[in-house]
Amino acid sequence: MALDWRSWLLLALFALPWDSWGGEADPVTSVMWDYYHARLLDGAPFVFDQRVKLQAPPFAEDARQVPIQVDASAFAGQVERILAWAELNPIPQIFDFAPGERVLLRLAIRIRIEQATPLRAAVLTRDGLWHVGSTQIDAAGGGCTAPSVVRAQAGWEEHLGEVLGRRFVLADASRLRLQIAHPMDNGLVGGIPEFYLNQAELRDASGKILARLELFPAVSENPTLSLDLKDEGETELWLRDNNGNEFKAAL
């Protein structure tokens, strides 16, 4: 997309360091916060907290594949769950991430957005407090209701569940990058019912769970995600969709 004035504002803010955002007040303009606080966080105690770094581009160039990245490293050793959602999406929820000890508190994934929206990542710490990271993204829109790219390709069914991936050495971690072939039908397009990956587990060689990830159909077609591990140990990714298909990959 090209920019209108709201995007220019976002682009201008984009270059600012995190610290320049306001303190405890909601850093984004939201009409839906109370609703999501009640619905997704059960009205539990929370703070808006810029230590939860939620990154997205200032505008969605492709509303069907918008990259978001959460970093809750500031809460190392204290995190139970990380939830993410796009407030003004018809399907707001993105993921519910339960990281184990060997996994860093970072996750990147691509999502669909239907219009300009606040994005949230809420981190639940052991003391029962939600720390909410926020950002805002502009969009021409239509990402949730655009026709499926996967389904337009002949023979896509034969590739269902294929996983592309690789492990990368970062300065402080071992990164797993994964892309899973799946249409992630969200039930909003062309009368096609919901058909999406809804569960993932990262396991070690002995089958022990390193992290659990619940996915929602705000996640883009052919989900692309990154998980960062503390060590180089072998891992297996297990996935299941809402039709009960199971897939596995080893890295």
Partner: peptide, 14 residues
Amino acid sequence: YPRYERARLRRVDR
């Protein structure tokens, strides 16, 4: 970028 990253990934499903 999707083209560049796909070129660096390989099949890992089992």
